[in-house]
């Protein structure tokens, strides 16, 4: 079953434009010039129940505008959207009972209260009867292991503990869809890992559909099976994570440490990225040359160390952002085209 259905979803903002100088300022008072910016431009996608989806894109690509339209904060100009079968712009309140939101930068907890009091507060917001709220708090505190600090004021908790409470609080009403906006922003690697595993657990044990936006490639890579990339208001890629890697990971990075500096052969499919004495970094395009063929061209006697790795996902995503940016100058390019052509 689809929990989110968006069809040709569009939102256009008008941005005021002003010419330079005093004359421009005066002109703007009498004849304000505005410019249309297509923040979200005919986006269509569906999300199935229980999916974990990464919704990513560079700053200003239209991610948060889309989330705002999915949660009923912003009304679309055009197109249709249904979340859990509900039109968010028409029945925002009804939808609110069934979805949860966590914004990494914004705290929703009262810091002078204990997590327990906070949960009771959110229980009241979602009209949970006392008995049900109690039961739910017990359940969540078990899953998120909150027992040790459930009665300590939030302001005395560590950042990691706080985020765990934030997540638990957003689940008090058993939302079927959870919108996570940059949930791990500003956290140290250990806490990040901890939060990721909790999100995973949440998805698995509670079957919560998770709609995640993040700039952190680690979040995306470790959590999501499906990735949707938006840029300039359009979806430029909607693919499974394995498919994405399979398509874009035909390039390998080979790092070598050699006894003495050597002249490397000029061959199609091998690009020297960096060479500094005995340290060499190569990129091998396995579509042109197999990795074992490439290695055959290197003198094994001379080799001290070797490391073969994939191109980091981060670079792939950056390439996709860039490709879309430059394609704009040439004219609109749809996502499928890009997918077929590769990079």
């Amino acid at each position: 079953m689809n929990v989110i259905e968006a069809e040709n979803l569009s939102k256009t903002f008008r941005v005021k434009r002003k010419e330079k100088g005093l004359q421009g300022s005066l002109k703007a008072i009498f004849h304000p010039q505005t410019e249309a910016v297509h923040a979200v431009d005919r986006i269509s996608f569906t999300v199935e129940e229980g999916e974990m989806l990464a919704f990513i894109g560079p700053n200003g690509a239209g991610k948060s505008t889309t989330i705002k339209m999915l949660t009923g904060i912003l009304y679309p100009d055009d197109g249709a959207v249904k979340v859990l079968g509900i039109d968010p712009s028409k029945k925002r309140k009804q939808l609110a009972y069934q979805i949860g939101t966590v914004f990494g930068q914004k705290e929703q907890l009262w810091t002078h209260l204990t997590p327990y009091d906070n949960f009771r507060f959110f229980g009241a917001i979602y009209d949970l009867p006392d008995a049900e709220a109690e039961a739910r708090i017990r359940e969540l505190s078990e899953i998120f292991e909150l027992d040790a600090f459930i009665n300590t004021p939030v302001r005395s908790l560590s950042l990691g503990q706080r985020i765990r409470c934030e997540l638990a609080a957003s689940l008090i009403h058993k939302p079927r869809v959870l919108f996570l906006d940059e949930p791990t922003i500003g956290l140290d690697p250990v806490v990040k890992e901890n939060i990721r595993s909790l999100i995973k657990q949440m998805n698995k044990e509670l079957h919560t559909t998770i709609f995640l936006t993040s700039h952190d490639v680690g979040d995306i890579e470790k959590l999501c099976k499906r990735i949707v990339i938006v840029n300039n208001g359009k979806i430029v890629l909607d693919d499974s994570m394995t498919h994405l890697k399979y398509h874009y990971l035909n390039k390998k990075i080979v790092e070598l440490k050699l006894h003495e500096e050597a002249v490397l052969p000029q061959l199609a499919g091998i690009t020297v990225l960096k060479q500094n004495g005995g340290h060499v970094k190569l990129e091998v395009d396995t579509g042109i040359m197999k990795i074992n063929d490439a290695l055959r061209h290197i003198d094994a006697e001379n080799m001290v160390d070797i490391n073969i790795s994939n191109i980091p996902l981060e670079n792939i995503i950056m390439e996709i952002y860039k490709a879309e940016g430059s394609s704009l100058k040439r004219g609109p390019l749809d996502g499928n085209h890009l997918k077929k052509e590769g990079l």
Binding site: T71, G72, I73, K93, Q94, A96, Y97, F103, I125
Partner: peptide, 9 residues
């Protein structure tokens, strides 16, 4: 105001 718009109150 966004924060208040996602609550069912």
């Amino acid at each position: 105001l966004d924060a208040y718009l996602v609550l069912p109150k």
